[in-house]
Computed example of a mutant assay.
Amino acid sequence: MGIKEDMPLLARHEGVWDGTYAYFNAQNEKIDEHASRLICRFPDSGDIPYHQTNHYKWADGKTEIREFPAEYRDKRVWWDNDLIKGWAAEVPLDEYNRTVMLYWQRQGDPSLYLYEQIQISDDGQNRCRTWHWIRNGLLETRTAIQETFVTRDWRTIEAEMEA
């Protein structure tokens, strides 16, 4: 079996998502916010079974693009790149099949790790994600992300963005 067959919940996330990231410090004060467009894809060929590209845009015009190619094994997606090292897995205890959990560390900073929970709506049109950034066992930052599904046709959107 392949990644989409082994991880059908994650396969529901394939496509383009637009959203907003809001960051809060440990005192619950908003410290950052930006818009996003994520392209979540399962390439038809090649050595990368899952690849996510995150496009960020701040109100002041700043932009950033981050690439997250991943491996697949043991019913998990695995990242190990210049920015992060970690995994994503479906949560089998969720009988509603809505929850994906991620764990990762920033490369070069072993005192900081992050857990992310992703909830997809039953109709697949919305999802919310929550990150807990933990440093030395204490909450440092929370990230709340609201996203709306744009299209499953990531290939066309990707081509338009590259043009």
Rank of each mutant, 00 (worst) to 15 (best):
W79S: 02
I118V: 13
N136E: 00
A144I: 07
W17F: 01
L9W: 07
Q117C: 12
W133F: 15
E158M: 10
N136H: 02
D94C: 12
E95M: 10
A163H: 11
K4S: 02
Q27D: 10
R152N: 15
Y56A: 04
D80E: 04
E33K: 04
A35E: 03
W79H: 09
E29S: 01
E95Q: 11
P49A: 02
L114M: 13
Y103Q: 07
L10H: 08
D44Q: 15
Y56F: 13
G2I: 02
Y115K: 02
A59Y: 02
A35V: 05
W17Y: 10
G108N: 15
N126K: 07
R73L: 08
G124C: 05
R98M: 15
K75I: 07
P8V: 11
D109L: 12
N136L: 05
Y96T: 11
R142T: 13
V100L: 07
D94V: 08
E95I: 12
F68N: 09
E162A: 14
L38P: 03
D18V: 04
N136I: 03
M161K: 10
I118S: 11
W87V: 08
Y23C: 11
W131V: 12
S36Y: 02
L83Y: 14
W131G: 07
Y56L: 05
R142A: 01
Y50P: 04
D153H: 12
I39W: 10
D6N: 08
T151H: 11
D82T: 03
R152H: 15
G2K: 05
R142M: 12
E95L: 14
S111F: 04
G15A: 06
N126I: 06
T141W: 12
Y96A: 13
L93V: 01
A70P: 07
D153C: 10
P69C: 04
W58Q: 03
C40S: 02
L93S: 08
V91H: 00
G61H: 08
L83P: 11
L114D: 07
K57N: 01
